[in-house]
Nucleic acid binder design. Structure first.
Lengths: 219, 219, 219, 219
DNA sequence: TATGAATGAGGGTTCATTCAT
DNA sequence: TATGAATGAACCCTCATTCAT
């Protein structure tokens, strides 16, 4: 009566399988957030049976955490490298940082998307964005430090709160990418040409750098 | 069939009931977003039987739309009034607009919360934020107009794209309130004192106004 | 706080109201059967508030019974009148009865429709079709009697069971109208011309009368 | 989330499970029709959790379709085989067909029951009775053809519409079994002895064959 | 490791019916 | 009588998760 094993495993490559699940999960979480994501759909997208997810991850939450980890590790690492790697602190460093950040978001669209979900869902309140490391805080400290150095060097007006400066520039870049596609304010969607991104970047740098500089650039 | 039941508190005040449901729904949507919100919990919070929700609203989606309408109507109305009401265009108008907007968000915390969910959920893509009116677009046009007037009057550097200027200032205010409570960047949470809000507002105005001004204020 | 009676009754004509409900109910039961019918829709169709139904009827079941009564009373009455009214029993009486029955069904399409629902739903098993009277049985007895008279008079073959004869002719007529519109066997739907009904009637009479006659009509 | 539960009898026999669901569904649909059937009761009868139904079927409708398919496939197949299989066309072929059909309905009581529901529910109007095949139409064509052959051979009166002849004989058999148990006309229920079925069959054949024959049998 | 059947707690929604006004 | 808000038990279906194979 008992049927002999009718099916065999296809890929038999744990590494690949895990990656497939993770990738499918990322897409699903990006699109629907944690609550809206369906493990069944993730399995389908990853072309694995539903149950297999639970061999690689402890559950939906764990899978989500893994996705966040995978997505934000390079984000934080890159930021750290960038901020800590520059030798000479000048106006250029900050400008470069902004550009780098902006382009990173542009090229990794899941980052702003997942951040948007993260921010919306205040349920996580006390959970750090990335599980293992407390890079968020570190990053900010480092960024603020660099700003402070800029202030000491006379490029940046000393009365500004370094933390605020960092937040302002991060927020402007982030918001541009997070609000893409939502009809919140239509700005930038009008023409539909991709260069709007870069145009906005230039605008933001213009305004922002001038806003924090000690003296207006002769430009 | 389905012999009904002994009743308890037939309150008999439709106006009140509807408001209770709407209010409970707002809280639930704010906390969990559309997908995560549970009609059962809304009913419990509103102290009505679950079925009654469907007497007042066509379904979860309709309820959500009603909440959005209710929340954003004053938002758009206030913005419009403010922007269109000012006679003389000077640097003060813009500054006042920023302050007004910032305080509105501060005093109506569901607005940034719901906006955060809205932005995260790109599924709505082609749905205007508020059902009946297309105020979002109107607002931006009006704001941009005012900026252009400022440029014509010589207060604002003419090479800036008015739409971008509006977006920058909106985003800075919005992001501050949206990111409250999420451990994204810890900025502003450190002390926990409420004045951080106002401090940041002053900072933002400082930087932003200087960034867009034609000549640096003598400060 | 308590609102003064904001609405007045419109029609204030109990007779009319009852009739409206009954009529709407009939349409709804015809279309969806007892289980599928919705009291809410009946109320809407009748343009009365939901609750009003319960002033006129005890509930859905009672309403259904009332509809059945109203629909089948003329059915049974007419049959009785026809069968009992004829004086002379000849082949014509039976043929006329068939014609009458067939046309009655044709002109009162809810009858076959409700009968179809009734037959499908064996849950009623022990409930007579019409509440108050036991006309079904009476009718058959009377019909069978007339057949027996016909047998005695030599028009109808004596070896036939009179009850069967009645049933056969009733069933043929009934089935024609009950199966209208269902793609069971497409017969009769082909041309779509209404005369198919009458053509079939002639066919049925032809076959049936010949089938029960003692000697084939010279035709 | 939703930590699952201790399990009991994981039976692990998909074939069997599917069959159990289908069988329970058939019983439920027979008894209450599509609208009146409850998936919960089906699950209970089949001794499976309610959710499992949706592993095998897409929904109630799909389940219903599967039941119809399963029930009517043999019906149509048998009819086709019978009608197409006979070599010599004589009066016997038709008589045999009637007997076969009648006995099929007698031994497969769900067929008339489901047909009754189907006929009652005109909502399906444009849906063929059985999903995949259009056998209904084919069947009638074939049946009509056979009748026409009988007319050509001189057994059946040529002025009769073959389609009508088929319908008449199908309807008589069907109606007998469909009306069983409903107190429409009490005929045949009086004695309660099972032979009434066969008695009626003989009656029907007698009347019907005589009614369509070219010349009355010498009997 | 892989597979997909099995599990049962809700999820949103409907509905007949009651009742205050 | 008339009105429509109120009630709560189902109903169909979904879903994260477990487990036999």
């Amino acid at each position: 009566m008992t049927k002999p094993h009718p099916s065999r495993n296809r890929s038999r490559d744990p590494e690949r399988t895990r990656a497939a699940i993770l990738s499918a999960a990322r897409a699903e979480f990006v699109e629907h957030g944690f609550t809206g994501a369906r493990t069944g759909i993730i399995a389908t997208k990853a072309e694995v049976p539903q149950g297999l997810i639970y061999h690689y991850f402890e559950g939906k939450q764990d899978l989500f955490d893994a996705v966040m980890e995978e997505v934000f590790a390079p984000y934080f690492d890159g930021m750290m490298a960038m901020l800590s790697g520059a030798q000479e602190v000048g106006p250029d460093l900050l400008e470069q940082a902004i550009r780098l950040y902006f382009h990173f978001l542009k090229e990794n669209p899941h980052v702003p998307r997942l951040l948007a979900w993260w921010m919306a869902n205040q349920g996580w309140k006390d959970k750090p964005l990335v599980h293992k490391r407390e890079l968020g805080a570190e990053l900010e400290v480092l960024g603020a430090q660099r700003i402070a150095e800029g202030q000491a060097a006379g490029f940046i007006r000393p009365e500004l709160d370094p933390g605020f400066v960092v937040k302002t520039f991060v927020d402007i870049c982030l918001m541009w990418h997070m609000s893409k596609g939502s009809h919140l304010l239509e700005c930038g969607l009008v023409e539909g040409c991709e260069d709007r991104d870069l145009e906005y970047l230039e605008h933001a740098i213009e305004v922002f750098m001038r806003g924090i500089a000690t003296s207006p650039p002769s430009s």
